[in-house]
Write a protein that binds this DNA or RNA. Structure first.
Lengths: 325, 325
DNA sequence: TTACAGAATAACAACGTTGTTATCCGATGC
DNA sequence: GCATCGGATAACAACGTTGTTATTCTGTAA
């Protein structure tokens, strides 16, 4: 079925080792011959056999990604990008939506070159994995090298900025259920910022949602806006919550930024699909993916990354925020 | 790094071909020897080398799944299940979230045994793929063998049922934008049913949403319920729309089924997470996944399933529907 | 012309596995 | 006691590729 290197060799009238070298662009073969061989290979529709190649090279050029939470939109954006970047380095990404342990097992069987784990948990059980593992999540006492975003500082940055332009009534909308450490970190950052700026955290400054979906944000903010003491600035804990919040604000016939300034967490590309520009705080997706890609290549090369990498968030302000005199 | 079959052979004092046979449970090797070899292999932590194995067997035991629309929850449920089922047949699932053409290319390079494509489009461009392709979507003039759900009949069934228990004012809520052929089919089924039962399609029987998300359903239904001539029964075009509809109904202080009966499309497990049981119409997920798995194994073996498979929906009624005298 | 360097290409082993074929050895039948 | 049979295991080729080593060929200097 498949056309092999030997078929090409026969067609070109050379030995098969020459073909191999020609296709790998080795300097050991004369340019004209090389050109001719490549042309013939293309014509025959030659596809290198991955199995044979990785058998001899002892590498699969494949990276396994463990992604148990398929639902999270932010992760989807990350994975798509990482996938692209790795392809540039001629690695193929392999996704598994199984449970973490089971996925790690499978990837060990498949002998991928490295495993990337997306997990909310702060640590993974210590599995015996022959393959190096990188995790993206919380770098608190990690077992494996980890890439993490400093969510606490992100929200802190936002509070400080809003304070600096005169806001006195700032609210944070997000999941305060303490189930998810990632969300918890944001709340801590908010509280820290409020204490720093105002020496207190008013009861109604934290707007609780019960989930991270659009509707959760919509409902929570709408309920809050119907009460007195309307905040002049809101920090939204995630992309979907921002979407819901904006709908709630529109529905109340309020204006961004004249009535309410908004800063959204999550620095993902979709943020540009809103009707109006929205200020954001977070680590740009591109930086996250670059870092992860680089870290993966590093752990493959055995450049042991002992330290975890913690990324610093950036603030991007535009007309969704206005100062208060 | 890896412990090979030869290491096991040396440790067991037998030839490596004997080890191979013992591990594949061949009758050619004596039971006691077999047992001993397996024990030693386990002890050494032997993992068969996939590359070598697929090099000789000319199979990768891997199936590529093209999944360009990561966001759709219904697809996530399907894929998870298919993944499980294939694992039972010792196939590994490989996900790609790239564009369809690019993904098919990659999978050809990796020489997977078959490709499963999730696509809204009614047909794929005729790519030169050496690997057999199965698609899940619309089986209208398909190029590749296709597994399809008869969405038209599903909604038709629902209309007929509601009519049979006395409803005179039935509405369908769904995406009527005609962008998506899958959604379009449902609308056609609804219209057909209405004509069949009532000889007409009232203008307000179709409740348009502009998307398939929860909030889209919520907003559209709420708007509709504020108008006169409230429907006594509603058919929801998808799981997320059902969720939104239920919220709208609750918010208006209406009761299911006393004020409004509900039937939801999408026969997925999550449907059981609602506060109350909801009647559904559609093909149970398990049947879809079984069919797809079987079809995949078939095209791998025979390389030729000429006919597409169209699945017939089922109606599952419970207390979310009540008759009208 | 012969010898020889250096480039170009051919030959070959190796990667880890599987299926086929060959070998060994004990038991059986005459 | 010898040939034979058959079960158990060993030996080996093959899968398609790459890196190393061996061979051929070309052009140049003695």
């Amino acid at each position: 079925m498949g056309v092999t290197i030997k078929d090409v060799a026969k067609a070109a009238g050379v030995s098969y080792s020459t073909v191999s070298k020609a296709l790998r662009d080795s300097p050991l073969v004369k340019p004209p011959t090389k050109k001719r061989i490549i042309a013939i290979a293309n014509e025959l529709g030659y596809q290198p056999n991955v199995a044979a190649r990785s058998l001899v090279s002892k590498k699969s050029n494949t990276i396994g990604v463990v992604w148990p939470t398929v639902e999270r939109a932010a992760h989807a954006a990350l994975i798509t990008k990482i996938n692209e970047e790795l392809e540039c380095h001629s690695y193929t990404t392999l996704l598994s939506i199984n449970r973490v342990e089971s996925a790690i097992n499978t990837f060990n069987r498949l002998q991928v070159d490295a495993i990337l784990v997306f997990s909310d948990k702060s640590y993974l059980d210590d599995h015996s994995s022959n393959v190096p593992i990188l995790s993206y999540g919380i770098a608190k006492e990690p077992i494996h090298p980890t890439v993490d975003v400093n969510r606490r500082d992100a929200i802190l940055l936002a509070v400080r900025y809003l304070y600096s332009i005169g806001h006195k009534n700032i609210a944070f909308i997000g999941d305060v259920s303490q189930q998810d450490q990632l969300q918890e970190e944001k709340v801590i950052g908010f509280k820290q910022g409020m204490l720093e700026c105002f020496n207190e955290i008013p009861d109604d400054a934290l707007i609780h949602t019960f989930g991270l979906e659009l509707y959760d944000g919509y409902l929570a903010l709408k309920t809050r806006l119907e009460k007195p003491n309307r905040p002049t600035a809101i920090i939204c804990g995630s992309y979907d919550l921002t979407k819901g919040s904006i709908r709630a604000i529109n529905e109340m016939n309020l204006s961004i930024p004249n009535d309410i300034s908004i800063i959204s967490y999550d620095n993902i590309p979709q943020i540009n699909t809103f009707d109006q520009p929205i200020s954001i705080v977070g680590v740009p997706n591109e930086i996250i993916t670059n870092t992860i890609t680089k870290a993966l290549l590093d752990i493959i090369e055995k450049k042991d990354i002992t330290n975890s990498i913690i990324l610093t968030p950036e603030l991007n302000i535009n007309e969704s925020c206005i100062g208060i005199k």
